[in-house]
Design a protein around this nucleic acid. Structure first.
Length: 501
RNA sequence: UCCCCUGUAGCUCAAUCGGUAGAGCGCCGGACUGUUAAUCCGUAGGUUGCUGGUUCGAGCCCAGCCGGGGGAGCCA
């Protein structure tokens, strides 16, 4: 699209910590798979199941807590499959009828109950698991009324689970998805931090007015229900303010001071998009580099996506294998292929030529000057090159005002990274650092120059070549997990007409 | 926002030509000396998304609305 505007993304933070694997014993200092320190104390002195499953049988007393996935058994012995979210697997707890005083209570345990178990880790007598817990005490921390608890042992559809998003993280699928999401977020920070990039917290509330007004969420403290005309001057900030649609412009201000920076946080788009690839609230990562051109930008993008996928492959093996078995038989092969591939780099003009010569009958024309459609992007990356493709030097008229104008007068230094199956995963550009060129473009597009005075001053005072890109976190999680719908890779999806939980 | 599909028990689904709603699983009760989505027996469970219309009769046909899904556009 051309016309209006499009910036990119956002900011923010959040504490990434352990989550993946267990901690447990009060003085453990083992690194988790992502290098962050483990939490070393548990309020109730439990050992995480991830750690128990790695341990050897022992006479030492152990204690675990978690939620019961299934209960089986007879009058003499019951088996509880207990999961605490520390890993995909559940651990089997064996409760003999004479081993605990409250066996009658144990027999009333149903799926979803929370339990506190004490016992010993022993070699399993049964098949299907190598170790299990022989219980000496079972305490029910919280019952889950059988007839009311919506999760069953049997599988549910993703559509149904979306309606109970408060409980779906207790399923194998969503446990795996959100552990992977965490690992990706952690890998993103570590990639940039290890390269000396500074994390910048760009604002969520912003008055910068350079995107299409219809696409933004407006923020006000005024009660508009009465139908009175909106008066910005008397509103909280004294002017119209909205939720950020991109932290890029603010990111550029910091890149032209601190050198290499990135933003990582939530972003909001009020577009009425109803697709498996769009959310009204999503997270974006936006690196921005001073003293960098488009080639350097492409290099970083390629290194970046490979690095974070590599990290997840090495740290989330069991979760990925589960997701592969359940949702995408080619998942691991696809991810390994991305990591091993050298991304193809072509210009937009070359892409148009390839598409024209392809002999394919596309629904949309492949005319120079038109943006590439999803079908075109997929043909390039899936059919023709069969690996990720970076397309650069797009026509200026279909790209944003801040992209650097090439010498041919027709194209700009933009680049999109195209992935098999999901199309564009990254969009970026070298920025227009020449004040006169930037001002000319802004005027050409009818944007109010005054609202961007602060942005333009970076070009007035010590301007330098710089470049950056944006990556949608959820689309990345989608690609890495094989989940088809973006609503299943964010805890509580916000979409048109839906903001539950 | 546009196009298409869809809505029946807690869940997944069935119900011939329009003839008065069923199964599996789950839940609940019982049986079973180690189970693996355990197994076996039994009970309960429904205003067929909502509103209106056509008809002797509507889960089924028609209209509107609401929810869900897919595709498109837009993007990340």
């Amino acid at each position: 699209m051309s016309g209006s505007d499009r910036l990119f993304k956002g900011r923010l933070m959040e504490r990434q910590r352990d989550a993946g694997e267990g901690a447990g014993a009060p003085s453990s200092t083992d690194p988790c798979p992502h290098g962050a320190p483990r939490l070393t104390s548990r309020p109730m002195n439990r050992t995480r199941i991830a750690e128990l499953l790695r341990a050897d049988p022992s006479d030492a007393p152990i204690r675990l807590m978690g939620w019961v996935r299934t209960r089986r058994g007879s009058k003499r012995v019951n088996f509880l499959a207990v999961n605490d979210g520390s890993c995909l697997e559940s651990i089997q707890v064996v409760v003999g009828g004479d081993d605990v005083p409250n066996f009658d209570e144990v027999q009333r345990i149903t799926t979803g109950c929370a339990v506190d178990v004490e016992g010993r880790l022993v070699a399993s007598q049964g098949k299907g698991q190598s170790v299990e817990v022989q219980a000496t005490a079972v305490r029910v921390l919280g019952w889950a009324e059988g007839e009311a608890y919506p999760l069953q042992k049997k599988g549910h559809t993703l559509e149904f689970l979306r309606q109970i998003a408060h409980l779906r993280p207790r399923t194998n699928t969503f446990g795996a998805v959100f552990r992977v999401r965490n690992a990706l977020a952690d890998a993103i920070h570590r990639f940039f931090q290890s390269r000396g990039f500074v994390w910048v917290h760009t604002p969520i509330l912003t008055g910068s007015d350079c995107e299409g007004a219809g696409e933004m969420f407006h923020v006000t403290t005024h009660d508009l229900a009465g139908g009175a005309p909106y008066d910005p001057a008397s509103d909280f900030f004294g002017k119209p303010v909205h939720l950020t649609v991109s932290g890029q412009l603010e990111g550029e201000l910091f890149a032209t001071a601190l050198g290499d920076i990135y933003t990582f946080g939530p972003t909001f788009r009020a577009e009425n998009s109803n697709t498996p690839r769009h959310l009204a609230e999503f997270w974006m990562v936006e690196p921005e580099m001073a003293f960098c051109d488009l080639a350097g930008d492409m290099d970083l993008a390629e290194d970046f996506v490979k690095a974070i996928i590599r990290d997840v492959l090495s740290g989330c093996g069991a979760d990925l294998e589960f997701l592969q078995e359940r949702y995408d038989k080619e998942l691991l092969a696809t991810l390994q292929h991305i990591v091993a591939s050298s991304f193809e780099r072509i210009t937009y003009t070359e892409a148009i030529r390839l598409l024209a010569e392809s002999g394919e009958s596309f629904e949309y024309p492949t005319e120079w000057g038109h943006d590439l459609q999803t079908e075109h992007e997929r043909w390039l990356t899936e059919q023709y090159f069969q690996r990720p493709v970076i397309v650069c030097d797009y026509p200026r008229d279909i790209k944003a005002f801040y992209m650097r104008q090439n010498e041919d007068g027709k194209t700009v230094a933009a680049m999109d990274v195209l992935f098999p199956r999901i199309g564009e995963i990254i969009g970026g550009s070298q920025r227009e650092e020449r004040l006169d060129r930037l001002q000319a473009r802004i005027r050409e597009l009818g944007i109010d120059e005054k609202t961007l005075w602060w942005y333009l001053e970076t070009r007035r005072f010590g301007t330098v070549p710089h470049a950056g890109f944006g990556l949608g976190l959820e689309r990345c999680v989608q690609f890495v997990t094989g989940m088809a719908n973006i609503r299943d890779v964010i805890p509580f999806p916000r979409t048109p007409g839906s903001a539950d939980f």
